[in-house]
Design a protein around this nucleic acid. Structure first.
Lengths: 229, 229
DNA sequence: AAACGCATTATTGTCGACAATCTTACTTGA
DNA sequence: TCAAGTAAGATTGTCGACAATAATGCGTTT
């Protein structure tokens, strides 16, 4: 039915995996709903073969759970899982910040300061804005992660965990976060990295993420489920 | 050909994934070798369908890399990847130890002390032994990980990363490690946990893993590839 | 003799159909 | 009326075959 967005990829299976991921993260396929292979195959206009491969991939990403002879279900977001996930993020991104403190070049640091300044300017311009957590190269966290130079860490954080984290952000609408406070924390982390203070960078990154998780928790306690798209 | 070990599972795909994982970790399928779908399907006596699903799973575990229209290859162990992986372990198991310091019950702590004593006794009995890193419930690290009560962390460490780590241990034969030193470190970590000193437990666990990674690095620099089984 | 191009071959990607299992609805009995 | 058993339907798991892409080998050309 919605075969509109077709990101041509080398293989059908990858396409489907990509589209399914988006559909789940944005809520077009609601939480806890069953994944019907015949139905989805028809919707996306493919056979069940590639679709199944895509589902297996999504299981690896933790977006769906599968039980033998029964099928796949979209995960159901809940506070405990969110806290668990963010605790992992704390450990991993903390380590990334620590590593970045020794691996980042002067130019990289400079470029990141510019990014922060840009965010600051953007905030000053639109007071009401919600500091949209943009993915891509403009995301502070992604920059730090890549700066760690640790291939495994990068892959885990940006490919395997990213989808679920995006999903939590998306579905709780994340309104509570104070963008100016977040920006201040980003700057403090970057300062520590610029001074090659790995311990401090890790500590600050952990606090930063821990704070975000507390806010998300509050949001999840008060706000119900978010609507699609 | 080697259809001897058949762990009956609910679905063929799981079986194959399990067997393939073992074959790769033990070296029966050598590093860097190509995974031929027709060949393996014939060997295991299944069609290509379930086999492909298994391969997708292995890709998620990081045991093989796949390129479209070309196929899958077993990963090639190298020092840099090992160091990257162990750095992640440091962050994650360090966090697990920190969490365990607050979540472990008195009985659990007691039981772990008993396990350590058992290991000690085993070491005193067989002086020459290499303190075989047993998996299962007798592994100190696994106990700590599970004690963290963090489902996501547990799944990541024991299901996703475990295979690769096992592979590194296996292929470098890990002879260098000083089992008595390792045991002393285990005891120190447990002491910290028993005293509910999360910071210390994390620090000690990190050092412990870091030390192991250094030893593995030396082993990989001096020892060549290990033989199967 | 070496290199380029083309044809052949083999492997991967995809599809539709069959088998096995689970779910659901109905019937039957207490 | 409710419960249990059973049969029908639907869904997942598996298979073999076809299509598309990559790898291989041969012949031609310079």
């Amino acid at each position: 039915m919605n075969n509109l967005i077709s990101i041509k990829s080398a293989t059908l299976s990858e396409d489907i995996a990509q589209q399914l991921t988006n559909a789940i993260v944005t809520g077009h396929i609601p939480q806890g709903s069953k994944i019907s292979e015949p139905e989805l195959a028809k919707q996306y206009g493919v056979s069940r073969g590639p679709l199944r491969e895509a589902i297996v991939k999504l299981e690896g990403l933790g977006l769906v759970t599968r039980t033998a002879n029964v099928g796949a279900r979209v995960i159901q977001l809940n506070i405990q899982d969110m806290l668990d996930t963010f605790t992992m993020r704390e450990a991993l991104e903390g380590m990334a910040a620590r590593l970045a403190a020794t691996t980042m070049s002067g130019e990289e640091v400079k470029s990141l300061y510019q990014l922060i300044d840009k965010h600051q300017a953007h905030l000053d311009a639109n007071q009401d804005d919600h500091y949209v957590q943009q993915g891509g190269n403009d995301d502070f966290h992604l920059r730090i992660i890549h700066a760690s130079r640790n291939t495994k860490l990068i892959r885990l954080l940006t490919e395997e965990l990213y989808a679920v984290i995006r999903m939590y952000r998306r579905h709780t609408a994340d309104q509570r976060s104070d963008p100016r406070q977040a920006l201040r924390e980003h700057r403090a982390i970057l300062d520590a990295i610029a001074n090659h203070e790995g311990d401090l960078a890790e500590l600050l990154m952990r606090r930063h993420i821990s704070r975000a998780s507390h806010l998300l928790k509050q949001a999840m306690e008060h706000v119900s489920v978010a609507s699609p798209s």
